[in-house]
Structures are given as C-alpha cells and as structure tokens.
C-alpha cells in the first residue's frame, strides 16, 4: 500500500525511471496529476475548510472594525494592531502570558523529569507510584479546576488551613494578583505532569543499560551519569515535551476561565483569554482576530526558535 501512494503524492521526489517502470502497468506517469489530486483532495478540502479559510478570514477580519452582528464594516488597516500593541492593558496581558508560559514549561519539565527519574528505579511497589504519577492525565480540566479552587479557597481552603496551623499570614490566593498567577501556574503544572511524566519515563526506560554500566566502570558519579548519559539520550523526548508544553501553555484556557476568569485586576488575563473575551463576550471580532494573529505569530516564532537553537543540542 505504502509504495503505491508515495510516488503519487510526491511525484517530483521520485526518479523518473521508477515511474516509467510502473507506467507500463497502469500508466501512472501520464495520470499522476490526477492521482495526486485524488489522494490529496480530501485532506486539502478538509484543511481548506477548517484550517486555511479560517486563518485567512481571521487575517482579513483583523483589518476591520466589526459591527454588532460580527460583520466587518469599516476598513482600518493595521489600526487594530497598533491600538493593541500600544495599550497598556494588552502589554500587561503579554507580560502575564510570558510569566505563565515560562513558569509552566520550566516547572513541568523539571518536576516531570524528577518524577520519571524516581519512578524508573526498580523498587517494590513502584508500579503503584507510576500509576499515581501519571494519574493527572485522566483528570479533566473542569475537575482539576474545582479541586484546586477548594485548595485555594480563602476560608475553607487546604492551603490556608495549613497556613493557620503554622501561624503563617493568610494568603488570599485567588483575589491578589501575584498569588493568583502562582496558583494558576501550580494548577497547570499539576495538570501537565501526568503526560510529561509518562513520556519522559518512557524515554528513560529506553536508555540502554550498558551505557550506565560503562560509565560506572569509568567511575562516573550518579550526577555525572545523569548529565552526560541520561540527558543526552533523552534529549529528543525532552525537546518534544518542551515544545508541546510551550504551545499548550500559550493556549491555556479552561483552568484560567474556571479559576480566575482572567482576574484579579487582569493579572491572569492571558492572551488566549483576551481573545475569548473580545470575541465571545464583547462581540468585537475585528480586535479578537488581531489578537489571534499576534498570538499565532508569537507561538510560531517561539517554536521556530526552539527548533533552531534547542534542536542543535539534541542528540538523536
């Protein structure tokens, strides 16, 4: 099956001779354009309707003011972008997003790796821990939000009860700007941990044992082994998880909506949340489109940078 599809979908990459050899059978050479169309058609159609058209439409809408039924009425060029980038509220949103994304990616990777490193040891009952560590994968966003809301609640919350026992000052977790950001970062990291753990755990198990044995014979310390054997060996997976977590963090919506709704004082008003607010609450589609475009460009830029700089350090 595979061999029948590849020459059709990527005709230019295949040497001519191969095509000609096939052509004797059913004349792929003459009809390959039609084959290409037949095989690519469905996916082009689906992508076109659900990806490319919305993308272009968003770009188009971002250049307009939209009226109260969402139709573009007044062309204003790049004014939406200019207004956004010069508004202090939007700059604050960009800043909040940066803090959130950095926090989430860093802690998810570090904690995920720590848990994976712990779980890879062969101890009695380790299976149980492995299940627990990956358990957050099965938790939906809404459940997680309610769970963490209980923990951070000001009067009945677990954190404040522990704090009271230890005679620590009371922290209004979700109603003061700084702690609110910490609270959503903690919750998101917790949500991400299951998946990250599982992927990194898999990678750690794939590291060939003889490498460690050789290192041990050379007299390498455990920490040296970790940095010079483990890390290089799992670097492709680490790279993958960092990219996925980064993109995921930029797109975080559910937890924010349920826990803080962008507040207090817009402290957790991330870029995606601002898009949602402007489009679906304020009905301001032009502005929301401009915000989406900015967000898309930023994500693309970061992913590109990651590929450019991090991938060099990845050992496949």
């Amino acid at each position: 099956m595979q061999q029948e599809i590849t020459p059709a979908s990527k005709p230019s990459l295949k040497p001519k001779t191969l095509n000609q050899a096939n052509a004797k059978g059913f004349n792929l050479h003459v009809n390959d354009k039609w084959y290409a169309l037949a095989f690519l058609g469905p996916s082009v159609l689906i992508l076109g309707v659900f990806v490319f058209y919305p993308m272009l439409r968003t770009l188009y809408l971002s250049l307009f003011l939209t009226n109260n039924v969402g139709r573009p009425t007044v062309f204003i060029g790049l004014k939406n972008y200019v207004n956004l980038l010069t508004s202090s509220a939007y700059q604050a949103s960009l800043q909040a997003t940066a803090v959130y994304v950095i926090g989430v990616v860093a802690f998810t990777l570090i904690l995920g790796l720590l848990l994976a490193q712990m779980a890879v040891r062969k101890l009695a009952g380790i299976q149980w821990f492995r299940t627990i560590f990956s358990a957050t994968m099965g938790v939906s966003v809404s459940v997680a939000a309610i769970f963490w809301l209980f923990i951070f609640s000001p009067s009945i919350g677990l954190f404040d009860q522990i704090g009271t026992l230890l005679h620590l000052p009371l922290v209004q977790w979700l109603t003061t700007p700084g702690p609110a950001m910490i609270a959503v970062i903690i919750s998101t990291v917790w949500m991400n941990l299951g998946f990250t753990f599982l992927i990194l755990f898999g990678a750690l198990q794939m590291v060939p044992q003889p490498l460690y044995e050789a290192a041990a014979i050379e007299g390498a310390s455990p920490s040296y082994q970790f940095f010079h054997v483990t890390l290089p060996m799992i670097s492709p997976t680490l790279f993958f998880t960092s990219t996925v977590t980064l993109i995921g963090a930029f797109k975080s919506f559910g937890l924010i909506d349920l826990m803080t709704a962008g507040g207090p004082n817009n402290a957790t008003n991330l870029m995606v949340y601002q898009v949602y607010r402007d489009a679906f609450l304020n009905g301001n589609y032009g502005l929301a489109s401009a915000e989406s475009v900015i967000l898309a460009v930023i994500i693309a830029l970061f992913t590109l940078l990651q590929f450019k700089f991090l991938e060099k350090r990845v050992t496949y």
Partner: peptide, 21 residues
C-alpha cells in the same frame, strides 16, 4: 473586606455569610 470578583467571590461571600462570619 474584599472577596474579589466573579463567581468565586459570590460563592465565597455567600458561604461566609451563611456560616456567620
């Protein structure tokens, strides 16, 4: 006192009121 904004504030102030605090 400040209970903040949104549905959480509403739930929390109601809970505090009902518990006599």
């Amino acid at each position: 006192v400040n209970y903040g904004a949104g549905a959480n504030a509403q739930n929390n102030e109601t809970a505090s009121f009902l518990s006599g605090r």
